[in-house]
Design a binder for these strands. Structure first.
Lengths: 340, 340
DNA sequence: TCGATTGCTGAGATCGGTTGCAATAACACT
DNA sequence: AGTGTTATTGCAACCGATCTCAGCAATCGA
């Protein structure tokens, strides 16, 4: 019986069938694809044409096995549900396949054991390198335990300036921007709610807040320093219990800011009328929040691209860079002058 | 020089070195791992012990190449930045590795060409099956074009009840729940803002709204039927221009609801005081919105698990099921009685 | 006691490419 | 014409497993 499409069992298009069809040897076909300059252009074009006609593409599996290097690169994140990591994943996916890689997203749920698992798995897949966006301080030792320990880029700062390339944004600068913005609006008593703790980034932001506040003569007001997703909620509760609450709040990240505003809102406290709130991340989601969130924007897209560049750079000349990007202020509607 | 860790070039742990170390043949080692019952338990344990000692694990690449089937399964989504897909990805990641698969996230940005690309790529990787959460009506033809066209599960309804297994939630039921909730609160004039169009799901919700509204004697009020992310914003604008706006709004999905509320808020319209808004999805994020979003919850986690089950089921007995799940009402704070 | 099963292990081809080396062809130069 | 490159292509081993086929020993039934 004749179907229009030749399905069923087309004899498993391999390099050999192309070779036969083109009247050349296996190896020549291989070269035609992977090392074009090593084959006479006539031959190459002929082969490519034949292959095209057959609808042939090389098996990435077989290639990886033989070459001992593949094009799939793992991005290890603690929680894809967190919009920050989602945005990171998005831009990295793009950055990756602009360069011919396939991004493989690995979600650890904060479990370090899983991180380890992914590492070995990826090693077994001959991943040329990997990207880690951590939820906890990176265990450099763990990183090194893997053959490709030299080939990981971390999106966060790393303790002791190890041999691992990193990309971060300048936390201090970001907090400073927030503080300046708030000061400019007339606020003097500015609170802080900490975010997903454990990372150096989170700690840096906190430290920066503490330091810069003290430096400007005011006393820091830490509403919550918890590490979980409910920090925002607790921060708001704390706020509500205060006799003389701050007139503005800096949230360690946008998600926390959302939670703070939500919790505040359900108690009748309005933002920015009653209290200003500023986030840190610059999530697209912030623009659709109620009110649209004023925040410190991290150049997430850049981070993605740079992470991959760093990895590649390291792979060729072994260099290990530590890039720190500048954040910027994004004024929307959740901040205004203090109520008087 | 002696380092504590034996790095540099440990001679590439392969099945053969384990075999040698254990004093057996390659094939026996292979069996010890992949078909334990086929090898004498003594031998097996010995081999496993040796392997363990060497820190050996099998190469998934080599396995996939030979067996012509791997454990990596693609999840194709239009946009991971959309929390719905993020949550789906999260639960599916878990569901996948509970069953020994690795989820590979593929983001298409709505580009059908990319979907095709991923399909062929995954085919080349011998993925046993794939999951598609579409942004447009699924092109069944395109699906079939691929050898594993028979092995795709779609998270959405599919036209003409093709041979592709699907998982969806009952849109009509969901809209009914929303309508009932709103009616119960005393609302009679209920508007609708459409969401990411293109999918059958989106259309089903819209149709359900139209039909159920008419059926209850009221006239439908469609505030926006656009397909992009700004539907919410436009819907809100439209609302603001109306002489006699509805007292409640059903948003086709949570993201749209967020946008509606945000846009409304920036014009001074308060939710739920001035107008009630109910979403559709049940995103975790909704609990942290301001106000916390009342919504129709889809059992996302179930959808993930079921999708994988369907795929496996199809792989063994060739059965093609179409599962439709029941949504449920999740009352939070964005709905209340109409202002009078 | 002997042929027939059954259980376990080894040989070797194979999956789909890559790559060093050898062979041949083509071209340059004295 | 003779010889020394250089450009192309073929050969065959190899990457790290899987799997069919045999071989051999132990067990079983009569």
């Amino acid at each position: 019986m004749t179907t229009s499409t030749e399905e069923e069992n087309m004899p498993d298009l391999s390099i050999d069938v192309v070779a036969k069809a083109a009247g050349v040897h296996r190896s020549t076909v291989s070269r035609a694809f992977s090392r074009p300059e090593a084959v006479k252009s006539e031959t190459r074009e002929h082969i490519l044409r034949v292959a095209e006609g057959l609808g042939y593409t090389m098996s990435p599996l077989a290639q990886a096995l033989r070459r001992k290097t593949s094009t799939i690169i793992p991005l290890i994140v603690p929680d894809i549900t967190n919009p920050f990591f989602a945005e990171l994943a998005k831009t990295m996916t793009q950055a990756a396949d602009e360069r011919g890689y396939q991004l493989m997203l690995c979600v650890t749920n904060g479990d370090p054991a899983k991180t380890d698992g992914y590492f070995t798995a990826m090693q077994a897949m001959y991943a040329p390198f990997g990207i880690v966006a951590p939820s906890t301080k990176v265990d450099t030792e763990a990183l090194k335990r893997f053959a490709f320990g030299h080939k990981v880029v971390v999106i966060d700062r790393v303790e002791g300036d190890s041999s691992v390339p990193t990309v971060t944004v300048d936390s201090r600068q970001g907090i400073m921007l927030a503080l300046d913005h708030l000061h400019g609006l007339g606020h003097t008593r500015i609170g802080y709610v900490s975010g997903i703790a454990g990372t150096h980034t989170a700690q840096d932001r906190m430290d920066a807040y503490l330091e810069l506040t003290a430096q400007s003569g005011s006393t820091p007001i830490v509403l919550d320093s918890g590490s979980d997703l409910d920090a925002g909620t607790r921060g708001a509760e704390h706020f509500l219990e205060m006799d003389n609450p701050p007139t503005a709040i800096i949230a360690a990240n946008d998600m926390v800011a959302f939670a703070v505003i939500s919790a505040l809102g359900s108690s009748g406290v309005r933002v920015p009328e009653d209290v200003s709130v500023i986030g840190f991340d610059g999530l697209a989601l912030g623009a659709r929040f109620n009110p649209a969130l004023t925040t410190i924007r991290q150049p997430i897209a850049d981070m993605g691209h740079i992470a991959i560049e760093l990895a590649e750079k390291q792979n060729v000349d072994g260099s290990v860079d530590h890039i720190v990007l500048e954040p910027e202020l994004l004024v929307r509607r959740s901040t205004s002058g203090p109520r008087r």
